[in-house]
């Protein structure tokens, strides 16, 4: 079946199978920033924006995306700035979790969140196995302009 979507601002028609999950379709079409972690909605590594809101793409049926807007890391110009902050703070060790975290943090910036406590709560669904989160939190604080 065919679905019409807007990915990163571009209109696209994608050819999908009825059983396919959004994560797999996005990767098949070359959006490699979208990665598979737990495949059950728990780790946040596969995060994309669906009509502007963060969702785990491993838990979204591709057919459901018909007529909707998807944004991946590739479509977020602010991503680079935050990625550099992550690197500065030593917060991308294996780096596997970074794309999901970046998508979600850029979303928080759009919401104008400036309190660290609030950011932490909103990022509860983005797990990282390497950093122990401290470095990430420093980078997030800088990026969001958290008031000390």
């Amino acid at each position: 079946m065919k679905i019409k979507v807007i990915i990163n601002g571009e209109k696209k028609v994608l050819d999908i199978e009825p059983h396919e999950i959004l994560l797999d379709v996005l990767r098949r079409y070359g959006y490699y920033s979208v990665r598979r972690g737990c495949d059950t909605g728990m780790c946040g590594i596969c995060t994309v924006l669906f009509d502007g809101k963060p969702v785990p793409s491993c838990s979204v049926f591709a057919a459901r995306a018909d007529g909707h807007e998807i944004t991946t890391l590739e479509g977020l110009p602010e991503a680079k700035e935050f990625a550099e902050l992550l690197a500065e703070e030593g917060a991308d060790q294996c780096g596997y979790c970074s794309p999901g975290l970046i998508v979600n943090t850029v979303y928080l910036k759009k919401l104008k969140i400036k309190k660290m406590d609030e950011a932490k709560i909103k990022l509860i669904g983005n797990l990282c196995r390497c950093t122990g989160y401290e470095g990430q939190h420093r980078a997030i604080a800088k990026f969001l302009g958290v008031e000390k």
Binding site: P54, I121, K122, I124, G125
Partner: peptide
């Protein structure tokens, strides 16, 4: 319940 992402869906 879940995470903000799970609650969005």
């Amino acid at each position: 319940i879940g995470s903000p992402m799970i609650r969005n869906r």
